[in-house]
Amino acid sequence: MNKDIATPLRTRAILEKYNFSFKKSLGQNFLIDLNILHNIVSAANVQSETGVIEIGPGIGALTEQLAKKAKKVVAFEIDNRLIPVLADTLSPYNNVKVIHHDVLKANVHEVIQAEFEEQQQIMVVANLPYYVTTPILMKLLEEQLPIQGIVVMIQKEVAERIAAKPGTKDYGSLSIAAQYYATAKTVMTVPKTVFVPQPNVDSAVLQLMIREQPPVELKDETFFFETVRASFTQRRKTIYNNLLHHFGRDKKEEISLILTECQIDPSRRGETLSIEEFALLSNTLYSKLKK
């Protein structure tokens, strides 16, 4: 019987065996709490037929728990020092493949095609490094991969921003971007004490389930996201002022009329607008200003 990787003792033994030193630049924090790993796996609803993509497996603590449940796990690891470590720690599992590559530069569509069966349920499950959380999540969402969902351990503050509702201080362009592609909820908060080395902040497990259809119909997706970002340029300013700043002061009258037509009070701030209101606003702006 193999001893689980995610215990303080076994983690320390592996690190010592390979004389491994943590690279701050790679945001390496390894989990040493089995309960939390089990919660992550169950939040991702990993079954015997599930295919899993993992990002940043570290020494394989989460990978091992996924391998016990899933049909296959494909893990992207950027740090070449960890490739021999993973070959050792994951040797009992023949359903794991480690790819030595930066996921941000990888063609994930191609990897899915090569490694998983057609129509297989695929989940992305990861303990993500803090410094690249947003770019990785946005890549996974924007590329519209054939996946069912994403369950990730990320910085608590970022998880709260992604899952935020309109009218709250955390709600912003990141919330809208993520919720356009997926439904978002925070599954649990994770204290910094369950990591080696300890990070400076608490973490949270975020669950994103991919929508079959976006919640709104858009005339132009790129323009929609541009409008959303513009509306949050300066959070303390009104939607009217932020739009003027973005589209130009010479558009004063048009913007004023468009807001009236959309029944959006010009004195409101971006964080009070729902995704539906943003869709209506961007569609109207697109029709009137882009003709």
Rank of each mutant, 00 (worst) to 15 (best):
M1R: 10
L9M: 06
I14G: 01
F20V: 07
N29C: 07
L31Q: 00
I32D: 09
L34H: 04
L34Y: 00
N45I: 02
V52H: 01
I53H: 02
P57G: 06
A61E: 07
A61C: 05
T63K: 04
Q65R: 06
K71S: 05
V73K: 06
A75R: 02
I78A: 11
N80V: 13
R81N: 13
L86M: 07
L86C: 00
A87R: 15
D88H: 15
S91D: 04
P92L: 13
N95V: 09
V98C: 12
H100N: 12
L104F: 14
A106W: 06
V111H: 07
E115A: 07
E118G: 03
Q120I: 00
Q120Y: 10
M123F: 13
V124A: 00
V125N: 00
P129G: 10
P129I: 04
P129V: 10
P129F: 12
Y130K: 07
Y130T: 08
T133P: 03
T134G: 04
P135K: 12
L141D: 02
Q144W: 04
L145D: 02
I147H: 06
I147C: 01
Q148H: 05
G149S: 11
I154K: 00
Q155P: 10
E157N: 12
V158Q: 10
Y171G: 09
S173G: 05
L174D: 05
I176S: 03
A178I: 03
Y180K: 09
Y181H: 04
Y181T: 06
A184K: 04
T186W: 06
T186R: 11
T189R: 12
V190H: 02
V190L: 04
K192A: 15
V194M: 11
V196F: 15
P197G: 11
N200R: 15
N200W: 07
N200A: 15
V201T: 14
V205S: 05
L208G: 03
L208C: 11
M209G: 00
I210G: 08
E212V: 12
P214K: 11
V216S: 10
L218A: 09
L218T: 08
F224K: 06
E226N: 04
A230T: 12
K237R: 10
K237N: 02
T238R: 07
I239P: 00
N241K: 14
L244R: 15
F247L: 06
F247H: 09
G248S: 11
G248F: 15
K252H: 15
E253T: 15
E254P: 04
I258K: 14
L259P: 03
E261P: 08
Q263F: 14
Q263Y: 13
I264A: 08
G270Y: 08
T272D: 06
L280S: 14
N283C: 14
N283L: 14
T284S: 14
T284P: 02
